[in-house]
Computed example of a mutant assay.
Amino acid sequence: MKETNATSQDAPKRTARVRNRRGEGGRLREDIVDAAAALLDETGDERAITLRSVARKVGIAAPSIYPHFPDQPAIMLAVVRREFAALEAHLRAAVQEAGEDPRDRLYALSRAYLGYAQDHPGRYRTMFGGLWMPTLGDSSLTEEELTTLGATAMQVLADALADCVAAGQSSVADPQLDAVTLWVCLHGLAHQYSVTRIFPWPGEPVADAIITRVAKLNAGPTAAG
């Protein structure tokens, strides 16, 4: 949307930002990412994140962004990368807290994933496409940058499923493939939880049913056994 010129009375005041000392340019880059993430939380709309809006939030002139980010999609990519890192840390913490039993760890990880989606709906939607992802060639982003997003978080899920197989608690034949299948199911459930207001969900938690069936869990030996 084209921005109109405002009068001096209507124009939002930009808080003067203290200039970084030599060697502190990285701090400004983080401030830009922080501002974009804050705008996303406030508006829930990636379209509200423009170079001008981010610059106003930080308290700088828009051209000051260019040494750090060539365009708006590059800023969004930095936001999304940081969120995937936060998701990965969240999942690893859930696995660690679940104890030694692989099956318990897989359940805890999957529930933590759904909890993250419910607690951060705007950021979660943006992480998995949202409205920000541009057509390749229309921005500075590369195919590799987009296709590798979330790869390490997905590996946490694949490793947890492989541990269940190794413990004799799962009969899946391809943990990598079935981890993607499990993620697709959890992602779909997260979406339905976010958009469905009235639905007669069954008594058994749907998430547990998905995990048990897709991961082909059985009553195999526990870690203690």
Rank of each mutant, 00 (worst) to 15 (best):
E24I: 02
V95L: 15
A215N: 02
L114E: 09
R213K: 09
W183N: 04
A160Q: 14
G25S: 04
A173C: 07
S110W: 13
P134S: 07
E204L: 10
K13W: 02
A112M: 06
E46N: 03
I32R: 00
G99K: 09
D174G: 03
D208M: 04
A36S: 09
T7E: 15
T181Y: 08
T4H: 07
A16M: 10
T152I: 02
T43Q: 05
A173L: 10
M133K: 11
I210L: 15
D119W: 00
V172G: 15
V33N: 01
V58L: 02
A207K: 01
A36D: 13
V180I: 13
L77N: 13
R92Y: 09
D208N: 06
R111H: 15
V18H: 03
A167K: 07
A215D: 04
P205K: 03
E42L: 08
R197F: 01
E88Q: 12
T126R: 04
I49E: 00
R27F: 12
Y193W: 02
E3W: 08
E3F: 05
V214R: 13
T148E: 04
S171A: 10
R27N: 14
I49Y: 00
V206T: 11
D208K: 06
V58R: 00
T43M: 04
H191G: 08
E46H: 06
L40Q: 11
M127G: 05
A162S: 12
R27K: 07
R213I: 00
V58S: 04
P175Q: 13
A55R: 13
A162L: 14
L186Y: 13
A162T: 05
R56Y: 05
L131T: 13
R56C: 03
Y66H: 10
G25E: 15
G137V: 07
S170L: 02
H187G: 01
V214A: 02
E88V: 08
L186W: 14
I211P: 15
W132A: 14
T148S: 10
R29N: 06
A153P: 03
R81Y: 01
V33G: 00
R21A: 06
M127V: 04
D71S: 01
V54C: 09
L189G: 02
D34H: 06
G44L: 13
D208C: 08
V195G: 02
S170H: 13
E97Q: 12
G168R: 05
K13A: 14
G122F: 12
